[in-house]
């Protein structure tokens, strides 16, 4: 089986109040998705589009109120599989301060394998390995609160890597970071995807980050409204504008030029490609 995460008619709503007012719209409405193993999928959407709620279903932090979610073939509703699901589907959150549990970097990274009852020498090996992967090995004895935001987020990623997960869901991991921290996190994601073959689900506001993915899913009001390769999604500039999302600056440039009457393809997503298209046209 080559499917990592699968949702079928996933429906979810937050609890309605006691007056039984049923008018609250569903946060997720009949979402059906399949995420293939080893792929890098970006999920876009404005605030309240349901993207974080969807992410929380992937490792059984939330359970569907309708439909099913399976992670590596395991139904998230099956409580006996809970730990195994969470071990295989790791999750990195937005605020690094709120996911670090210990006063020492290496003890924090060890938290998950400790919970899983891994033997001490193996924990040591995994902690060292995870810290080296994110480039924080020299900081293993530091106190996390003295690190920069980007460094803290790298420690948080190491903490998830120590579980040896097959899929990692990143819930806006760069939203609170400065540009260099953001770049570091994106480099790690790239490395995990291409060197370890980890399935990556990235929830983000940054179009430039989504452009690096194999597949982009756009959500709005609890529905999947677009789903395809970055090039296929970002050419739909007007629709994205309507959803309140921006497009990468390269696409924006080409789009504006096209509107001004210059005939250009919109799918030159990377800066190099865009430059080449422009050079071919005008050069």
């Amino acid at each position: 089986m080559d499917i990592a995460i699968k949702t079928e008619n996933l429906t979810y709503f937050y609890n309605v109040d006691e007056t039984g007012d049923q008018d609250i719209p569903d946060v997720l409405d009949n979402v059906s998705l399949e995420i293939k193993k080893g792929t890098f999928v970006a999920i876009l959407g404005h605030n309240g589009s349901g993207k974080s709620t969807l992410a929380k279903h992937m490792n059984a932090l939330l359970l569907p109120k309708g439909g099913t979610v399976t992670a590596f073939g395991m139904d998230t509703k099956d409580e006996s599989l809970l730990l195994e699901i969470r071990r295989r589907v790791g999750m990195v959150f937005q605020n690094p301060d709120n996911q670090i549990v210990s006063n020492v970097v290496e003890e924090d990274v060890a938290f998950a394998p400790e919970n899983l009852g891994v033997a001490s020498p193996e924990i040591r090996r995994r902690v060292d390995d995870a810290l080296k992967t994110v480039g924080m090995y020299e900081f293993r004895n530091h106190a996390p609160h003295l690190l920069s935001g980007g460094q803290k987020q790298r420690v948080a990623i190491a903490g998830v890597l120590a579980m040896d997960p097959e899929c990692i869901v990143f819930d806006e991991p760069t939203a609170m970071l400065d540009p260099s921290g953001r770049r570091d996190v994106m480099e790690i994601i790239h490395k995990l995807r291409y060197e370890r073959g980890t399935t990556v689900v990235l929830i983000t506001h940054h179009m430039e980050e989504a452009a690096l993915a194999d597949r982009v899913i756009v959500m709005s009001d609890g529905h999947v409204v677009m789903d395809g390769k970055p090039k296929e999604v970002f050419v739909r500039v007007e629709e994205l504008d309507e959803l309140g999302l921006t497009v990468p600056e390269t696409t924006r440039l080409l789009f504006e030029l096209k509107n001004a009457g210059v005939d250009l393809p919109l799918d030159a997503l990377s800066i190099d490609e865009c430059a080449k298209v422009l050079a071919d046209k005008f050069g």
Binding site: R86, F111, P113, E114, N115, G117, S120, I123
Partner: peptide, 14 residues
């Protein structure tokens, strides 16, 4: 929780 915390049972130490 998403890092598999489930109380002290079966927990090991670094």
């Amino acid at each position: 929780e998403s890092r598999c915390y489930h109380g002290g049972e079966g927990r090991t130490r670094l």
